[in-house]
Design a binder for these strands. Structure first.
Lengths: 336, 336
DNA sequence: GATTTTATTGTAAACGCTTACAACATTTTT
DNA sequence: AAAAATGTTGTAAGCGTTTACAATAAAATC
C-alpha cells in the first residue's frame, strides 16, 4: 500500500495525498476528507524511509547512554523519551558501554541514520583528552548535540547539567559544620562527574582548613550493581585501619554499600557514621535508616534538555548551557 | 557525499561501490581496495534512508516497554539492546506507558518505520480482552513479535518467559512448609504476570488445603517508585486488623516497602514476618535484612529472545515459546 | 588462436515519498 | 463581464540507495 494506491482510490494525485498527510499546505476540505477516509479505510501508513529520503529527516533523536540498566540513566532515558514523544519526535537508543571506541561507533551509526540530534546521557561521554573528545566536535558539525549532566564547550553542543561540584561541597560542609571530623569520599570510576563531585568535596575540606588526605578519597571500580562489592571495599579500608565518621559518595549504590558495611560491623548510622548518597534514587528509600541523598533534579534537567533541543531544531536561539542546583535531601543516615 | 561522489572519485560505477559496501557479491580485490580507500579517506557513510528504501529493511528492531525507569524493564532493555547490537541490529525504543491506546500507537509508529521486528518487554502488553489484543495480531501479520515475559498464542508471535506461576507457587509452598500460617500476597496492577503469580500463590494454598481469603490478596495501585506508598498500604492493612506472618510479592519494591512497614512497627523480619520479593533486583541487597527474592533469569531470557529473533529473521524455524524456571534466592528476609 | 565459460563491472529501473512549478478553478476586484 | 488575485490540484524531478540484467574482461578449454 503506497501513496499511489491511495491517490488512485481517492481519485487525486499523489501530491494531494502527500499534502493531506503532511497537513502543511492548503487542501480543499472536501478533498482532504475524501483522502483521509481512504487512508483510514485501508490503514495506510507512509513509508518512513521514503519520507526520510525526501525530507532528509525522520523526526528521530538518537539517545546514547553507557548503560540503560543504571538506575539513574534509565530514568533519564525515560524522561527524555517521553518528552520527545510529546513533541512528535521519537528516539533511537544505543547503549554504548564505557568504552570510547564503542561510543564513537554509536555516534557514527546514529549519524548514518540521519537522526536530527543526538542526546548523550551522562558525563562519561566526556573524555580526559581533547583528541578523545574530537568525536563530539565532529558530530556537532552535523547535528546538535545535547549533553545531560556533562560540560563541554563547543559550538552546537548544548549542556544541561547540575552543579555537582557545588552540591557536593555544600553537603560536605554541612557535615563538617555538624561536627564530622574524618570524612571519606567514595566515588565510582566511569564518569567525569565523579571527579567534579570529588573536587567539590575537596574544596569543602580546604575551606575549613582540613588537610586533604589521599586515603580519604577512594574510587570504587566495580559495577553499579555490586553493592556487596562496595561493602567489601569499605570493609577493606576499615580493616586497614582507616577511621572515618562520615562517608560522602557519588552515587546511592555506594552509600547503600557503605551502610551495609556499617551494619555488618555494628557501626551505628547515623550516630557513629553518617552517610550521604547521590542521585536521590529509589535506593535511598530501601535502607535502614533511609539514606540522605543529593538530588540533582534529573526530571527538571531532562525537561529542560528537550526544551532546548526542540528550540534548537526549530531554529531558535537557545542557551548553550543550563545549570541546575543540586540539593541534599536529608533522611535518617545523617544527623545534620 | 553520496555513492555517486565515491564512484566518481574511485573511477567505478555506483553499483560497484554498493557491492563493496554490502560485501555480498564478487568484486575484484584490487577494485575493492581502491573503493574502500576512497570511502575511508572521505569518511563516507551511506544514507540509511535510501538504503532502507532499497532494502526495505534497516536492520532495526523496535523495542517497546511501558516504562524504562522501571528497574526490571531497564535491565531487560539493556540486555536486549546489547545482544541485538552484537548481531548487527540496532534498536528504536518507545516507552508506551501502561495505556492501551499509547501502545497501539507506538506499534504503528514502529511499523511505519519498517522495523524488522518488534520486541515487547513485559506482560503488560497483553490485555484482558481479545479485542484489546488484536493490535498484536495485526502487527504480527507484518513483522515477528517477540514477547518478553508474556504469553500469547498467535502465529509469528514468539514468547520468552519465566514460569512465574510455578516460581511463586514453589516459593509460597516453601513458606507454608516452613510453618508460615497467614500469608499475604501483594502484587501491583500494571501487568498480567502479577495475576499469574497470584494464581501460583493461590494454588500453593489450595494444595495445602488453606482456604483462600480475599483480604490476603492485595493489589497495590501505585507506582514502582513509591516505596513509601507501599509501606503505608501495608500499614493500613495491618491497622485494619489483618494478621499475617509472611508476605509474598510480585516485585521487589513491594517487598522492600513491606519491610519498611515491619521496621516502623517493630515487627521483626524474618522471625515475626517473612518477606519474599520478585525479580531479585538490586533492591534486594539494600534492605536489612537482605531480601529473599525470586529470580526469573532475566538475562537468560533476553539472550534467548534475541537468539530466537535473529533465527526468525534469518528464516530459521524457531520455537514459539521458551519457558524458563524461576528460583527463590534465599536471603535474610525468610527463615526457610 | 578461436571458442566457451566464468568473473567482474556498468546501466538503468525500481523503492515511496516531498515539493517546486505549472496548470487549472474559483473568487474578488474593477 | 473581463481582469486580477487567490486557492487548489497535478506533473515531474529529485532524494541515495539496491539489484536484475546486460555488457565487457579475463580465464579456461579446445
Amino acid at each position: 500500500m503506497t501513496i499511489y494506491d491511495i491517490s488512485k482510490k481517492a481519485g487525486v494525485s499523489i501530491a494531494t495525498v502527500s499534502r493531506v498527510l503532511n497537513g502543511s499546505t492548503n487542501v480543499k476540505p472536501r478533498t482532504r476528507k475524501k483522502v483521509m477516509d481512504i487512508i483510514e479505510q485501508y490503514g495506510y501508513k507512509p513509508n518512513a524511509f521514503a519520507r526520510g529520503l525526501g525530507l532528509n529527516s525522520m523526526k528521530t533523536i538518537g539517545i546514547l547512554c553507557a548503560d540503560a540498566s543504571d538506575l539513574y540513566l534509565a530514568k533519564a532515558i525515560y524522561y527524555i523519551e517521553q518528552k520527545l514523544r510529546e513533541n512528535g519526535y521519537h528516539s533511537v537508543l544505543c547503549c554504548t558501554g564505557y568504552d570510547i571506541e564503542a561510543k564513537k561507533e554509536s555516534v557514527n551509526l546514529l549519524l548514518s541514520q540521519h537522526v536530527d540530534a543526538i542526546v548523550m546521557i551522562g558525563s562519561n561521554f566526556i573524555m580526559n583528552t581533547p583528541e578523545d573528545n574530537q568525536y563530539i566536535k565532529d558530530a556537532a558539525a552535523t547535528v546538535p548535540i545535547m549533553l545531560l549532566n556533562a560540560d563541554f564547550d563547543c559550538n552546537n553542543v548544548y549542556c544541561t547539567l547540575c552543579d555537582d561540584y557545588k552540591a557536593t561541597q555544600d553537603a560536605t560542609e554541612q557535615l563538617i559544620n555538624g561536627g564530622a571530623k574524618d570524612i571519606l569520599y567514595l566515588y565510582n570510576s566511569n564518569s567525569y562527574s565523579g571527579l567534579k563531585k570529588l573536587a567539590g568535596f575537596q574544596n569543602a575540606l580546604l575551606t575549613h582548613d582540613i588537610p586533604l588526605k589521599k586515603q580519604f578519597m577512594q574510587c570504587f571500580k566495580g559495577s553499579h550493581e555490586d553493592i556487596d562489592g562496595v561493602k567489601g571495599f569499605v570493609e577493606s579500608l576499615h580493616a586497614k585501619g582507616l577511621k572515618f565518621d562520615a562517608i560522602v559518595t557519588s552515587d546511592d549504590f555506594l552509600a547503600v554499600g557503605s551502610m551495609n558495611f556499617a551494619r555488618a560491623n555494628h557501626i551505628k548510622v547515623p550516630s557513629e557514621l553518617q552517610v550521604i548518597g547521590y542521585n536521590n534514587s529509589i535506593l535511598s528509600h530501601c535502607s535502614e535508616p533511609e539514606l540522605s541523598s543529593i538530588d540533582n533534579r534529573l526530571e527538571d534537567m531532562c525537561i529542560q534538555l528537550v526544551k532546548t533541543l526542540i528550540g534548537t531544531l526549530t531554529q531558535n536561539e537557545m542557551p548553550q548551557k543550563t545549570i541546575f542546583s543540586g540539593e541534599l535531601i536529608k533522611r535518617g543516615s545523617t544527623r545534620i
